[in-house]
Design a protein around this nucleic acid. Structure first.
Length: 470
RNA sequence: GCCCUGGUAGUGUAGUUCGGUUUAUCACCUGGCCCUGUCGAGGCCAUAACCCGGGUUCGAAUCCCGGUCAGGGCGCCA
């Protein structure tokens, strides 16, 4: 057995017990004949005392070596307690030491207050994650996602995993595509969101679906937007109206903050529901920061934005005076128009409002969703309004066909988990809450992806690279 | 695709505005030595750097041009 206890759990109750600890050398304070080693794992730090007469090679110990230490737990000498660590009233007097793994010189120091350049941190992310601050971010991300899952589980949601290898569909973001070996010349696409699958699940009678879903979009990065891939808490419900969705998610956020972030205060409960037009008028943005003190990281200003226009304005004329192929859905093409506005679709679709809802937190859009269209004739009409060709429509025929066999009214929402965590933990970039983030150019600095593949792989896929244009 | 900012030892930095007393600052790391109550241990010593290419100049880390890498923004993100 490599260890009997972690480095964060020893206490006075264990005094005089023999324990075995394994962990990383956080610091060594060496007197030659006596050395103090702070042994660290993700649970904490324990001070270990090494005496040269018991342990021959204490001079060899370096930061980040991994040690296995067996010894007796002792109370600290009177007045020598360290209040800064959880194990500060005890220490372990080592009777044996084994170096399980040596560390060579580090590219940067771990667990010091020095701000290391992000490029280096990302290249050696496995070292960066040893820092207690980063370890905490990972822990809080886990706790938060676990809370969301448990809450929704109690509400009878099923988590269902939907395919990662799926089909490219027109419009939207650029797809990441994956060549098929068995069907040379054809490509899968990684999902930009599980949107169509979750609507099919509604047709399947899974009236409450959720997924902590990876989503892939080949678009450029921002400080608050991860390039390539990101995670969403994606959910969908049948037989609901917009209020049901908003109330569920609002309750979830309030409870989550209470349980996991008790030091934080929510600006307004219930969350204000702001009409899109009013947000633009009052705040000049559709993602307003409603906090009283905009510099206070412990304030959480949640609000809802509702009554979005169904279509985005492409030109002033199209927007106000009728259909045109330049109309684009402001959310996505499955978003339902408000019932009273359906009659506007024929002459002035630009005036139609929709059942879209965005959740905004501290000035960031952290989620969006809608009540969906569940009438295939209406869906077909929307396709026409955004100028879909017959071929483009055919890409969605499976969905329209599914709608012809009994489709419940349904709607849902997706929350961006990375961005939510960034705000909850008060970080400036999304990379601080992602274990192995891509850099700004969507490269993985640890693995150095994307990368070349072997010629035989290309051959097997039937792909010739156009080397002149690379 | 476009715009902006930055790049000094292994790490973090000073110096760059206004070119020259700089042998390029300091701390940590690393290597060596001393030390039995430290806790970001302490003391002494040592090693180690101006992103790449071109230009201006008697002289460039410093000014100019190009490149490259990184970050931020616009476009993009149904």
């Amino acid at each position: 057995m490599l260890r009997t206890h972690t480095c964060g759990e020893l206490n006075k109750a264990l005094v005089d017990k023999e324990v075995t600890l394994s962990g990383w050398v956080d610091t060594v304070r060496n007197y030659g004949k006596l050395a103090f080693v702070d042994l660290r794992d993700r649970y904490g730090i324990t001070q270990v005392i090494l005496s040269a007469k018991d342990i021959p090679d204490i001079d060899k110990l370096r930061n980040e070596d991994i040690l296995k230490i067996t010894g007796k737990v002792k109370s600290r000498l009177e007045g020598k307690e360290n209040k800064d660590i959880s194990t500060g009233d005890i220490e372990v007097k080592a009777s044996s030491l084994k170096i399980l793994s040596k560390s060579k010189d580090l590219p940067f120091e771990i667990n010091k207050d020095i701000e290391v350049g992000e490029e280096l941190r990302l290249k050696y992310r496995y070292l960066d994650l040893r820092n207690p601050g980063m370890a905490r971010n990972m822990k809080m991300r886990h706790d938060t996602i676990l809370f969301l899952r448990n809450f929704l589980h109690k509400e009878k949601f099923l988590e269902i995993t939907t395919p990662m290898l799926t089909k490219s569909t027109p419009e939207g973001a650029r797809d990441y595509v994956v060549p098929s070996r068995l069907h040379k010349g054809k490509f899968y696409a990684l999902p930009q969101s599980p949107q169509q699958y979750k609507q099919l699940l509604m047709c399947a009678g899974i009236d409450k679906y959720v997924q902590m879903a990876p989503c892939f979009r080949d678009e450029d990065a921002r400080a608050h937007r991860a390039p390539g891939e990101f995670y969403q808490m994606d959910l969908e419900m049948s037989f609901v109206e917009q209020d049901d969705i908003l109330e569920l998610v609002e309750g979830l956020m309030i409870k989550m903050v209470e349980e996991l972030y008790p030091e934080k205060k929510i600006t307004k409960i219930p969350f204000p529901r702001i009409k899109h037009a009013d947000a633009i008028k009052e705040y000049k943005t559709d993602s307003p920061d409603i906090r009283e003190d905009k510099k206070d990281d412990n304030e959480l200003g949640f609000c809802w934005i509702v009554d979005f226009p169904l279509f985005e304005k492409q030109t002033e004329e199209d927007f106000f005076h009728g259909a045109g192929k330049d109309l684009a859905p402001s959310h996505h093409m499955f978003t339902a128009p408000k019932e009273e506005d359906i009659k506007l679709l024929d002459k002035t679709p630009g005036k139609a409002k929709s059942y879209q809802h965005d959740m905004v937190l501290n000035g960031f859009e952290i989620g969006g969703g809608s009540i969906r269209i569940h009438d295939h004739k209406l869906q077909d009409k929307i396709f026409d309004l955004i100028g879909f060709t017959k071929k483009q429509k055919k890409e969605f025929s499976h969905l329209l066909e599914a709608f012809s066999y009994g489709v419940p009214p349904h709607g849902g929402i997706a929350l961006g988990l990375d961005r939510l965590m960034m705000i909850l933990l008060g970080k400036d970039t999304i990379r601080e809450v992602i274990a192995f983030p891509k850099n700004k150019d969507a490269r993985d600095p640890v693995m150095d992806a994307p990368a070349d593949i072997e010629d035989y792989q290309l051959k097997e896929l039937g792909i010739n690279l156009d080397k002149k244009n690379l």
